[in-house]
């Protein structure tokens, strides 16, 4: 399981640029470190972060091991219509986690 934290406004006026923040618990293991037993720790990273809203992908990120553990992103989108904003993370093995935030546009 992965704990996810989202910060986004619940309401916005049409056309307003809103700030979205997303944080997920994940080691983003680089594959370059060794553990206490001297063995290489296998690479384990989230490779894709995607945000959809009002029928479209509004933000997308391809991630490399240079992104810190427990990745956090702050970015923006223009409020268009009331509806769900879906945040989705996918790791290198195709496992994914998602969280939805409902936005009301007045």
């Amino acid at each position: 399981m992965a704990t996810i934290r989202i910060a986004a406004p619940d309401t916005a006026s049409a056309g307003e640029v809103i700030e979205l923040k997303a944080l997920i618990q994940h080691p983003m293991e680089t594959g370059y470190r060794s553990g206490p037993d001297g063995k290489r720790i296998e690479r384990d990273i989230i490779e894709k972060f995607e945000v959809t809203y009002d029928g479209e992908t509004v933000f997308e990120a391809d991630l490399q091991p240079g992104i810190a553990a427990n990745p956090i992103f702050t970015f923006y989108t223009r409020a268009t219509a009331s509806g769900p904003i879906v945040f989705k993370w996918t790791d290198q093995d195709g496992e994914s986690w998602s969280e939805t935030h409902d936005l009301t546009v007045e």
Binding site: T57, A61, D62, A68, I72, T74, F75, R78
Partner: peptide, 29 residues
């Protein structure tokens, strides 16, 4: 991009006109 990390590319972000503002914050190694 990082000139000193094991992998030079750190992240690639795809935006669009709907972003409203081309600004991204994150934390890197």
């Amino acid at each position: 991009f990082s000139p000193r990390n094991p992998i030079a590319e750190v992240a690639l972000f795809k935006l669009g006109p709907r972003a409203g503002k081309a600004e991204i914050s994150t934390r890197i190694r």
